[in-house]
């Protein structure tokens, strides 16, 4: 699967973060879809053909781990990468126990994210 056929869903309440990261992914040939909270992210997964989801752990309303659980109920094979702004890895590890493929710390390195996206979609 080449980058221009991969649709990445970015879910974070920091809209400026998702829009900028989305634009950077699009420059690199990906299709980026953004959502401001867990509920909107779930709707995107139901209504769009999403290949991979990138979720922030700390969001208003449904947080990242709750969103992950719902995603795994709706689309168990969808790869999910978690983003965490916490210094500790505890929540990221908890996310992986719940089925997330991986977690990355904020601020993130786009090349690292792309590496994880590529690996995830290849294994799909």
């Amino acid at each position: 699967m080449s980058s221009n056929t991969i649709t990445v869903l970015l879910v974070d309440d920091e809209d400026e973060f998702t829009s900028t990261l989305g634009e950077r992914l699009e420059i690199r040939g990906y299709t980026a879809v953004t959502a401001s909270d867990g509920e909107a992210g779930i709707q995107c997964i139901i209504n769009r053909d999403i290949d991979i989801a990138v979720l922030d752990l700390m969001m208003p309303g449904m947080n990242g781990l709750e969103t992950l659980k719902q995603i795994k109920n709706i689309k168990p094979t969808l790869p999910v990468i978690l983003l965490t702004g916490h210094g500790s890895t505890k929540e990221g590890m908890e996310g992986m126990r719940l089925g997330a493929l991986d977690y990355l710390m904020k601020p993130l390195d786009i090349n690292e994210l792309i590496k994880r996206i590529t690996q995830a979609v290849q294994h799909k």
Binding site: E14, F17, T20, R24, G85, K106
Partner: peptide, 13 residues
């Protein structure tokens, strides 16, 4: 961390 993440992505863009 969110502030820094936005600055980093914006500078990258």
């Amino acid at each position: 961390q969110n502030v820094l993440a936005i600055i980093r992505e914006t500078a990258g863009l």
